[in-house]
Design a binder for these strands. Sequence first.
DNA 1: TAATGTGAAGCTTTTCACAGCC
DNA 2: GGCTGTGAAAAGCTTCACATTA
Lengths: 239, 239
Amino acid sequence: MTDPSDAAIASADGRGERRSIPDATVARLAVYLRALTALAEQGTVTVSSEELASVAGVNSAKLRKDLSYLGSYGVRGVGYDVALLVERIARGLGLTRGRAVALIGIGNLGHALAGYGGFATRGFRIAALLDADTSRVGELIAGLTVRHIDELAEIVRSEQVSIGVIATPAQAAQDVCDRLVEAGVTSILNFAPAVLAVPEYVDVRKVDLAVELQILSFHEQRKSLRTRSRRRAGLEEVG
Amino acid sequence: MTDPSDAAIASADGRGERRSIPDATVARLAVYLRALTALAEQGTVTVSSEELASVAGVNSAKLRKDLSYLGSYGVRGVGYDVALLVERIARGLGLTRGRAVALIGIGNLGHALAGYGGFATRGFRIAALLDADTSRVGELIAGLTVRHIDELAEIVRSEQVSIGVIATPAQAAQDVCDRLVEAGVTSILNFAPAVLAVPEYVDVRKVDLAVELQILSFHEQRKSLRTRSRRRAGLEEVG
DNA sequence: TAATGTGAAGCTTTTCACAGCC
DNA sequence: GGCTGTGAAAAGCTTCACATTA
């Protein structure tokens, strides 16, 4: 908690507290990090903004601007050192000390999340699996024993949990959320299809499968409408 | 395919093709739809922008502007008719004809997605479960038999699949994506932690658990940095 | 009167384009 | 010569505030 290297993040350029990184940039930094890790694994040492942008699926100007919020870590005429950039982004995102995550709701989705290897490799540690259903308590999943949700507050304290993941049915989500907030958790990732009410100091991100599909559905519809309009327009132009 | 009611979407206001709905609005419309469905279930007939906004977690001006892209369906001094709005949003998002979805990759996550009830209730139909692993082929999940990925093209044609969901490991994702595109699928929801390369006419949305956690991690970090800076600033102000 | 619908203002994000540096 | 870093312009999104209307 008093690691001096952390203070450097806020003032890495030596001119006091850095201007906050835009939300849109933060989301992309996480994607760049994944791409860079893959590049590092296959032995790439240096990468240009053009190359990295193409791998990450953005344009190079945006990538350069995004990286510039972390500081000036590129070399003109050369590009970026992959290992250095991985380190800087990880630090910028606060991934240097494997944050503890509590996963609540061990149904189908909870099982899948518990078994997801990406947690450990990408800066997180599952500290606990919790469920309200006593018949699930005691089950062993991915090396962890499912515990009862009533133990939440104690676990959050002892394991220093800073992120809660809600994978319960929608009806249970707000209650679980309240318990997390009560226990002192200030970041929540919500997979339940429900909007959570939280104090303003708590961050919530949500993943809703049906919403994602509905967004795709909208664009699908526009594709077919466009085709039809073009057809109509074509006929009109002839006349 | 020649349902005349669809043409009305593009020109519902009688003044020719409507200006395209902003992406940010489309994403929220899906959330409003969920909230409205819940309200309808509990018997609410009419709702004001203020009420609906609060349930959906946005402010009322934004909600009204979002809804205005669909047309003028509110009543001044009264609010919105819940059932009418559900219908208009569903139509606006293209949810009127249960789109067929193919789910590829029946591991932990694939199982969870296959068992997710929200598909059917929110405008979609799982047309097929597919996997490359022959030992998984034949397994029965949620009433569907897992089939081999080589059958993809045929299934897409016969079932009119318009959306593909990729739940494979990262290494397999691009190959599966290519097969989907080849088969004529133009919308893809990708759960694999990989950036997919697709032709410009194909829409891809991605869900990456680790990216979501990393975004939360960034904000967590800022919370603790802010606290520390305040502490520091406090000391300095005293001197 | 109560609440919608919407121009206009303000803010954020993206893109451009090129100076600066290795 | 080649590529980064970044002001400035453009585009997109949110919020304001109020005229409008049932």
